[in-house]
């Protein structure tokens, strides 16, 4: 995926601070195609990890000793939608590093939360 247009990043589009009546400054645009491979990898790997952790949270309480019939199958079924959702959003990060830090951070925090709750 190559950048098709010049990036607008860095150009100042903000209104002078004294003009209070104008709407908030225009959101900056970035070249989001930059680092698409790294973003995709973060989306695929962290997305799968986040989805699996979410399925673990779904099995709480008593994740290990669940007695609710067929609930474990639903836990498997909820993995692909979350995985795909995270993968779909990974291109919104400004660059691959931010994608990895955010998604990786959520993965680590989610894992810690699950381990904490599941015991």
């Amino acid at each position: 995926m190559k950048a098709t247009r010049q990036t607008d990043a860095g150009r100042h589009t903000a209104a002078p601070p004294r003009e209070r009546s104008r709407p908030a400054r225009k959101e900056q645009e970035y070249d989001l195609t930059k680092g698409w491979a790294g973003k995709t990898l973060a989306g695929v790997l962290c997305g799968l990890a986040i989805a699996l952790i979410a399925s673990g949270l779904f099995m709480l309480p008593n994740a290990k000793e669940n007695m609710v019939y067929d609930k474990y199958q639903i836990a498997m079924w909820i993995v692909p939608p979350i995985w795909l959702a995270v993968l779909s959003c990974c291109y919104l990060f400004r660059d691959a590093l931010r994608a990895w830090l955010w998604l990786g951070g959520i993965t680590v925090a989610g894992f810690a939360l699950f381990k904490g709750l599941a015991g």
Partner: peptide
């Protein structure tokens, strides 16, 4: 910019 990346995707 968001439209551009999703068009590529």
């Amino acid at each position: 910019d968001i439209l551009r990346i999703y068009k590529d995707v």
